[in-house]
């Protein structure tokens, strides 16, 4: 087991991602942030919290998206859905999708499909905490990357969060 990000590095990375998103979306009026259920929510919660400290909190529109019904492996295995909560329109908005680990790209493919059922966004960007390079099965890349790592398919990236696991750390297993 190898530590990819320790608690301090993780905090700094989250802070940087928040700043980078804000840098590209100075006027947050037309921007919405969407975390991917279930694990992306831990990252997006923290990034949103970070951004809300930098600008008036009411400007930050934040939703949660579950992709279970859009998965491409529904034939072989069934998953229980999580809660989707997008209490605003995404029509003509700049959408930043936030997830924890970008691996095969299949989750993001499903998320793009799911997103389009809520309207037609002007632009969609992707923010990822850990990018597992060279393991993509679909042509999908992130716009904001916390950290890129090289890994082989049998390895696992695990992200621990304080609220859930009692510690904050990213490890490669």
């Amino acid at each position: 087991m190898k530590t990819v990000l320790n608690e301090q590095q993780l905090a700094i990375t989250i802070k940087r991602l928040g700043h980078q998103i804000l840098e590209n979306h100075v006027n947050l009026e037309n921007t919405v942030l969407i975390g991917i259920q279930p694990r992306g929510i831990f990252v997006s919660d923290q990034i949103v919290q970070e951004i809300r400290q930098l600008v008036p909190p009411v400007l930050v529109k934040y939703g949660k998206l579950d992709i279970t019904f859009y998965r491409d492996d529904v034939r072989t295995s069934l998953h229980a859905p999580n809660h989707t909560d997008i209490p605003f329109s995404i029509e003509n908005k700049n959408v930043v999708i936030i997830d924890d680990v970008l691996w095969t790209g299949r989750t993001i493919r499903a998320a793009l499909d799911a997103l389009l059922d809520f309207g037609r966004p002007a632009k969609v960007e992707l923010c990822i905490l850990i990018d597992r390079r060279f393991s993509r099965q679909l042509p999908i890349q992130a716009d904001y990357v916390g950290k890129s790592i090289d890994s082989i398919i049998s390895q696992k990236v695990k992200v621990f969060w304080k609220e859930r696991d009692g510690k904050e750390e990213v490890v490669l297993m």
């Binding site: 579950d66 279970t68 019904f69 859009y70 529904v74 229980a80 859905p81 999580n82 809660h83 989707t84 909560d85 499909d113 389009l116 059922d117 809520f118 309207g119």
Partner: peptide, 19 residues
């Protein structure tokens, strides 16, 4: 519990999923 999530789907602009 699954029905609760489908109820949310039925409130969307496009009330349809490809499952």
């Amino acid at each position: 519990d699954t029905a609760t999530e489908f109820k949310e789907v039925l409130q969307r602009p496009i009330k349809k999923v490809p499952s």
